[in-house]
């Protein structure tokens, strides 16, 4: 594979959910090492973008392509997309009763890697990553998302991201339901993972999260399309003025 186009490229993406078109020609490029924020009002298609990228079966792509380092991933099942390097931090992670975090993470890590990670190395890595997210060892023995608080769920998502080391991570409303302390821990966890190898797409309604995870670019998503793009200052502007002007524009269009 050529390394020439080392990017996540979304081209003219149209997506239907239950026969309604939600994304109507979305274009976006994410380079490794960059943090992109997607902001938009409720119902603009933010979560649809996140689920579509990861391959949720209910999201039907009618047009366009998604390339990860030149490879079109739209035909791949979610597990193959994970192997290509995509990761989604869920807004509402699901519980898997009876399956411990450690067992789940080991299975996931060994599914994604070519070779199984030696158990000792796995345990060591898990302990390190949990420490960054201020989780105690006992957490590894709990069942996946079962009885987790909102903050624990989001930390568990970032822990998975830390263990799986994706190339491109989509954080879907990771700030929702977090108090300020939990938000800080989660943001610190994400920041610890940032680097030249990782491209991040932060999906959020509010600017608050972007105080802690600094975006290089901000894209405004309204009614299934990117309507404006800019630097991090755009987030602050949106915080003041809201999305109203875009909504009117869109309905007039």
């Amino acid at each position: 594979m050529t390394e020439q186009n080392n990017e996540l490229i979304i081209r003219d993406l149209h997506v239907k959910v239950e026969n309604r078109e939600i994304l109507k020609g979305l274009n976006l490029r994410v380079e490794p090492g960059r943090v992109h924020a997607i902001m938009g009002p409720n119902g603009s298609g933010k979560s649809t973008l996140a689920y579509t990228l990861m391959g949720h079966p209910n999201y039907e792509v009618t047009q366009g392509e998604v390339l990860v380092n030149s490879r079109n991933v739209l035909e791949l099942p979610p597990n193959e997309r994970a192997k290509v390097g995509l990761f989604l931090a869920f807004q509402y992670p699901h519980s898997i009763p009876g399956v411990t975090m450690a067992n789940f993470l080991r299975t996931a890590v060994n599914s994604i890697n070519e070779k199984p990670m030696p158990p000792r190395e796995f345990r060591q890595k898990l302990r390190e990553k949990m420490a960054v997210l201020k989780m105690n060892d006992e957490f590894a023995g709990r069942y996946v998302n079962e009885g987790f608080s909102g903050g624990e769920k989001k930390r568990a998502e970032i822990l998975q991201m830390a263990m799986l080391e994706p190339k491109y991570a989509v954080l879907d409303e990771t700030d929702s339901g977090l108090d300020i302390d939990a938000l800080r821990i989660v943001a610190d966890g994400v920041n610890a993972l940032l680097g030249p190898q990782l491209g991040v797409l932060v999906i959020t309604h509010y600017q608050r999260l972007l105080n802690y995870i600094k975006p290089d670019f901000v894209h405004v998503l309204v009614n299934g399309r990117i309507v404006r793009e800019g630097g991090s200052e755009l987030a602050l502007e949106l915080e003041k003025s809201g999305y109203d002007e875009y909504l009117t524009d869109e309905s007039a269009a």
Binding site: H56, I96, V99
Partner: peptide
């Protein structure tokens, strides 16, 4: 979907549940 998004194949994901 949640398990598969972590790289786990469908058969293994079902068995895991």
């Amino acid at each position: 979907f949640y398990l598969m998004s972590r790289g786990i194949g469908e058969i293994e994901a079902r068995a895991m549940i």
